[in-house]
Write a protein that binds this DNA or RNA. Sequence first.
RNA 1: GUCCCUGUAGCUCAGCGGAUAGAGCGUUGGCCUCCGAAGCCAGAGACGUGGGUUCGAUUCCCGCCAGGGACACCA
Length: 568
Amino acid sequence: MKPLPIAFAALVHQALQDAQADGSLPVFPIPELKIEPPKRPEHGDYASAVALQVQRLAGKPPMQIAEIVRAHLPDAPFLGSAEIAPPGFLNFRLDRAWLAAQVDYILTAGERVFQQEDGAGKRAQVEYVSANPTGPLSVHRIRGGVIGDTIANLLEAVGYTVTREYYYNNAGQQMNVLGASVQARYLEMLGLPNTFPENGYKGQYIRMIAATLAAIYGDSLRDAPVERFRQLASESIFYRLKSSLRRINIVHDVFFREDSLYEDGSVEETIAALRARGLAYERDGALWFKSTALGDEKDRVIVKRSGEPTYRLPDIAYHRNKLERGFDLIVNVFGADHAATAPQVLLGVKALGYDPSCVRTVIHQMVELVEGGEARRMSTRRGDFVELDELIDEVGADAVRYFMLAQSPDTAMSFDLDLARAQGDENPVYRIQSAHVRCAGILRRAAERGLSDQNADLSLLGEAELALLKKMLETPEVINRAIAEMQPQAIAIFALDLAGMFHPIYDRVRVISDQEEIPAPMAAARLRFYKAAKIVFARLLKLMGMSAPEEMERRARAEPLSAESESA
RNA sequence: GUCCCUGUAGCUCAGCGGAUAGAGCGUUGGCCUCCGAAGCCAGAGACGUGGGUUCGAUUCCCGCCAGGGACACCA
């Protein structure tokens, strides 16, 4: 279904054209029309400030322009009335019968309610998480994961076919350090001489992997090369990482290995292409990308003096690969710590002759984990972190999704573990989910009592129900704006607003009551309304990657989180 | 020093150049013989600062102050 602002804008646009054609208004270019729900209900359901926008172009007072536009408005089934208000607003009201009838649209559309098709036939790729398998995920990666996955969901909601992708480096220096760290712990466990690497990974999980290896392989790995440990360790870490991500409904379609770019010659080709264009040169024994030629502040090393490429080179090759795959839209979700490199990579592919204009980069600010009123710095190397699994056990998968989503990517987030714990029963997650649960409860009770919504007369719905319905119909425009601005928190905020409108209605607008007599036709209309509301809440929860429970379960309180850390 | 992000209610945050700036938590006072009180009703409470653009600025631009992040032959 198309967003209503677009439908209203079409009417206003037509009215302006017609007014210009019959000479009521002078001819001027019609600006982009922004039509949105006003804050105050007495200003109508949707409002336009077009008369104020064009007052200079039209050379008339805004009130007069508004009146001219109103007089030229074409008919539309959804248009109830249009009023003008000082200093020149045009306030629209939806047709009440049309609005009530949207309950049936929602029921017919079912779980695809508010599905849009503008992206139909287009393919998008969204890259997120992309952590190297050297240890548990940091909270930053979790945040990026939730943001990226939700963007992917939203893109599907407007018709895109989406590839969810995870890019990782399984061959670099950090992985060797990981292998050596596990090897040392393994040998230590067997009582054999070992050397723990300088800058090795000190987390408890290294010991756990070593212990697992010892349990499976006994001492048969005592003479195995470090590569073997690297491979076993990364497999083990990846296994856990994927299963943790699955718990918060993050499942990638493609895990793209950096080393595949070496195997298929992409990295070499990238170097050759840059050289061929005179954009690579050697200095001080290293190979440089002449990025200043494309406006960068300084040139960047792509192959170190040691002969190893820097991360930049495979990153450029990877983005070239993405662009080669012909996506209509590519979304990269990075943490603020990687913000500076994103433009460099795009310069790289531009240097290769590709047009990166389909690439959108979403930079999210960092997550600060607060516990006991103190900020806790997370470090994989030091072994100080809270594991995703622990976080999920503590606050629940749905709460992890919601909290990580509900703030703008631009905002540095404080994830207060005490607060997440303390909120327990009273946080926004439950507020939204309980709206769905309550609808489910009504449907259940109605079924038990043999109530039906057949032949429901939706004109019996009250203003409060229609107001909620109107709000629900804003979903498509919220989705569009979230995508256009890459601000997926909009959907989380919207869902909470909607729940906030729902609960008072649930309280007063009853289908079943022991205290008041509810006529059968009224009960039928309301029942159908709640059916529709349930569908909408389920859709919103699904878009956010959260569950839509039929009944609320009381969750057992978990023990306080304790980060593992070790001073080795 | 340069670049990026952010300063909105006691706290955590929404807020698309429009009309009287919203929510959750907390707080004050009222509500449970009804579809799950994880709830409902009512109240108190905020745009860092100085300019500019505009009919109109929390929103856009510039300065200042404050906080976070980035400025590698680490990823």
